[in-house]
C-alpha cells in the first residue's frame, strides 16, 4: 500500500513524531511505500538540525534523516508553517534576509500543495497529531 504521513506536533513535547516515525519504519519493513512525510503546524520543528537532546535520549531529527537516506523518503516541511516558527533552509534564509538556517539534512521545504497531492496520490493519508 502507498501511505502518506502527516505530522502535526513538535518533537519531544508530543508523541506524534515518535509514533509517525515508528509507523513509517514498520510500514517500510512490511514492504509498503511511503509516498511522502509532510510536516505541518509545530510538526515543522522536527526538521531543525540545531536541537541538542540529551545524549541518553533519542534524537528525533537524526532518526528521520537516517531513515530518509535509507529509503529515499520525501520529507517535506510546510513553508508557511516553517516561516512562522523560524525554520529556514539556506535559500529561504537568503531570501528573507536572515543570518542563519536550520533545516536538517534530508528535509526539504515546500508548499501546502504537497500535502493535498499526498492525499490524492496515496492510498491512505495517516495524520499524527494531538
Amino acid at each position: 500500500m502507498k501511505f502518506a504521513i502527516q505530522i502535526n506536533e513538535g518533537p519531544y513535547q508530543h508523541q506524534a513524531s515518535d509514533s509517525a516515525y515508528q509507523f513509517t519504519r514498520a510500514a517500510l519493513a512490511k514492504g509498503h511505500e511511503i509516498f511522502r512525510v509532510f510536516l505541518y503546524h509545530d510538526g515543522v520543528n522536527n526538521a531543525t538540525r540545531l536541537a541538542v537532546p540529551p545524549q541518553d535520549d533519542r534524537n528525533i531529527t537524526q532518526q528521520w534523516t537516517k531513515l530518509q537516506k535509507e529509503h529515499e523518503l520525501d520529507l517535506v516541511v510546510c513553508i508557511a508553517a516553517a516561516q512562522r516558527r523560524g525554520l529556514l533552509d539556506e535559500d529561504e534564509a537568503k531570501r528573507q534576509g536572515k543570518d542563519a538556517n536550520n533545516i536538517a539534512e534530508g528535509f526539504r521545504i515546500s508548499g501546502l500543495g504537497q500535502l493535498i497531492e499526498a492525499g490524492i496520490e496515496a492510498d491512505r493519508l495517516v495524520v499524527f497529531g494531538d
Binding site: 505541518y40 503546524h41 508557511a80 508553517a81 512562522r84 508548499g111 501546502l112 500543495g113 500535502l115 493535498i116 497531492e117 492525499g119 490524492i120
Partner: peptide, 19 residues
C-alpha cells in the same frame, strides 16, 4: 491554538487541486 488558522490555509490551497 493555531490549528484553526492553519486548517483554513490548507482548505484554501486544496481548492486549487479541484478535489
Amino acid at each position: 491554538t493555531i490549528y484553526a488558522l492553519e486548517s483554513l490555509e490548507v482548505v484554501l490551497i486544496s481548492a486549487a487541486f479541484e478535489q
